[in-house]
């Protein structure tokens, strides 16, 4: 019953003064697809992610999203209320720094439960049960449910942020360098977890990373960005194993091969 792409970007662009943030970006994202946006820092990938997720207003182009009712809507035309509702129900956003996506001053349980309460859930027991279930799924000991994220390690915080986003069963999750600040061993565990969740829940994901290993492990398709433009895109295996652009070849050769 697939009706077409979940999200369609056409000629998206954003400038900072005379400097290009990103420009002429077009792609389709299909349900269940994981798209990685890769590039060095300053290449415009985070600007693009913010434009797609309506956290920034694009200067040019359109982003269309197929809502839960099947109707494709131009995101720029959404009202503030619709936009916020979308962001806390059908979308998730995982920040590189978990502190930006969590309420550090309230318990893990409340962090997970907040979205449920925001959409009108008013049964404490059920909210708590749901929070416990999600802590389990992201491998956080349920005993920690009443602890604040301040007392958590970096990896736990990141897993909590993911649980907090997934509790309303979003269909699309944006991720900005989700493994950025973590140790290598912690990264591996997190990537494994994300891969499992994406597969089990059939999530669509747009993930920004400078780490090609992350792109290889998680994504189906990838876009390589340089100076605000997409210079190469295709299936992840193809791009990584047979890069066409000299810049991509340089990027690929700079990572240790598995």
């Amino acid at each position: 019953m697939s009706e077409g792409p979940l999200l369609i970007a056409r000629d998206v662009g954003k400038n900072y003064g005379n400097r290009i943030g990103c420009t002429d970006v077009s792609f389709d994202l299909w349900p269940g697809e994981v798209l990685a946006i890769v590039g060095e820092s300053g290449s415009g990938k985070t600007t693009l992610l913010n434009c797609l997720s309506t956290r920034l207003n694009a200067d040019r182009g359109t982003v269309t999203y197929r809502m839960r009712d099947g109707v494709a809507r131009d995101l720029a035309a959404l009202g503030e209320a619709e936009r916020r509702f979308l962001m806390r129900t059908d979308w998730g956003f995982v920040h590189q720094n978990p502190a930006d996506g969590l309420r550090m001053g309230v318990s893990a349980g409340a962090n997970v439960g907040e979205r449920l309460m925001a959409v009108g859930n008013r049964h404490y027991g059920r909210i708590r049960h749901c929070a416990e279930d999600w802590l389990n799924r992201v491998e956080i000991d349920v005993d920690r449910i009443d602890d604040r994220p301040r007392a958590f390690s970096g990896g736990m915080r990141q897993r909590l942020q993911i649980a907090r986003n997934l509790v309303t069963s979003p269909r699309l999750v944006f991720m900005d360098e989700p493994t950025g600040g973590l140790d290598v061993s912690v990264q591996a565990r997190l990537l494994d977890l994300v891969r499992g969740l994406v597969r089990d829940l059939g999530l669509s994901v747009i993930i920004v990373t400078h780490d090609l290993a992350v792109a290889r492990l998680l994504s189906h398709r990838m876009m390589v960005m340089k100076e605000g433009r997409v210079i190469e895109q295709g299936l992840t295996d193809r791009v990584l194993d047979d890069p066409r652009e000299p810049y991509t070849q340089l990027l690929v050769s700079s990572i240790p091969q598995a």
Partner: peptide
Amino acid sequence: HALEEYGLMHVKLYEDIAH
């Protein structure tokens, strides 16, 4: 208020009960 976004209010009550 304009968007009737009151989830945070219940977060506080949730915290009370949890603690």
